[in-house]
Write a protein that binds this DNA or RNA. Structure first.
Lengths: 214, 214
DNA sequence: AGCAACGCTATTGTATACAAAGTGCGCCGG
DNA sequence: CCGGCGCACTTTGTATACAATAGCGTTGCT
């Protein structure tokens, strides 16, 4: 995406996720344009995107407000993500190329390394974890699925989940990735699906155990 | 959505679905603006939406083309729809209100009536069928799920499927709706999920049996 | 005093003009 | 003749001005 539009998107999303724009707060295009330092045009595009991703909701007539994500909505998000990403894993199992499989192995090796030291490198973990899932989704080779998952996987949520993980849980996460790689190598769709389901749902419960949202 | 923007959306979508804009054809904002009789601004919004729904794809650098939906893509669409809509049915089973249940009964009664005569009223069938599924999805009470399904259920596809149904199959469709209502009344999520899965997958195979796309 | 209608204002929708960026073609050089 | 460079043109991105519309307050009438 282009520069101003992308910036507006990131900026507004940041306002929402940081809580500066609390749930229910009205969002006017002009005010946001001022804040972002761009004109209304890219702001409008950013808002459309945020609306599609349900960060903002459109009221009775076309006025936008910050959506409130209660715990129920988060639970549904994780459920949908588990369902779809497990399906992606199943597809990937029978489609993945040797090169992608190797990339996953390398990725997970870096994850293991990141959490090996006395002080886990959470930043690296997150970055590599993201790559791992992206490679998997790409291997599933389904644009629709990829689009849907992109709207579903919120990195701030992932980050908070990882922040909640202790060393043991981080290691278990890496272990699950390893098992997923095995399932892919065996081209066992059901196995891959099951492992991914557990992987995401465990993340959900780790997340839920964390302090309430905001 | 507003008037010009909505019109542009419908117009462009029509061009794509009718085949006037064949898969792979480049789409320029200005040309579309001329065709639709509006300016580029609403056309851009329409294109964003169509892009999110994967009617059009954005090439290497920001140029738009008509996406081609091969049979593989259609299969994946049906698979995703079956998965998500079955999940919606499962949620609906434990959440549906008596009023919504009654609305479903009335809806299905109208469907049954529409296919009762010597010449099935396919238009009514389609309209009521759409209502039936919309009520179900609304009863699931999950905005995210609703958004995703909206992007997945293409009415032209549904229409073609129904056009392929003979009287027996139309009746079977209504019967499946009836069973779904029973599952809802019993608040049996698993049952509802299974019935919906079968309902969609049968539609998929009826669709696949039809002549190739375009 | 309450209700309704009017008009003002705030906000979104659309058009257009301009800026930037990428593509393709042609020209020049090897 | 082929390849690379550069310029022109096409296309998209952004800003701004104007139009339409919905909310809301105020004022006047009952």
């Amino acid at each position: 995406m282009s520069k101003a539009s992308e910036r507006a998107y990131a900026e507004i999303r940041g306002l929402i996720l940081s809580g500066d724009a609390p749930p229910g707060a009205p969002l006017t295009e002009e005010a946001l344009a001022d804040i972002c330092g761009v004109s209304r045009t890219p702001v409008r595009e950013a808002l459309r995107r945020l609306e599609a991703e349900l960060y903002v909701v459109r009221s009775d007539s076309q006025r936008l407000f910050v959506a409130d994500w209660n715990s129920e909505a988060l639970a549904e998000m994780f459920t949908l993500r588990a369902m779809l990403e497990a399906h992606a894993a199943a597809r990937a199992a029978t489609r993945i190329t040797p090169a992608a499989l190797e990339a996953l192995r390398a990725c997970n090796a870096r994850i293991t390394a990141a959490i090996a030291g006395p002080e886990p490198d959470v930043a690296s973990f997150l970055s590599e974890n993201r790559s791992f899932h992206e490679i998997t989704i790409a291997a599933a080779d389904s644009p629709r699925l990829a689009t849907m998952l992109a709207a579903l996987v919120e990195q701030p949520v992932v980050r908070r989940t990882a922040a909640r993980y202790n060393r043991t849980e981080l290691a278990r996460s890496a272990h699950e990735h390893g098992e997923l790689i095995q399932a892919f190598a065996a081209q066992d769709a059901q196995w891959a699906q099951a492992v991914m389901t557990g992987h995401i749902r465990r993340a959900f419960h780790a997340f839920s155990a964390a302090e309430p949202v905001q």
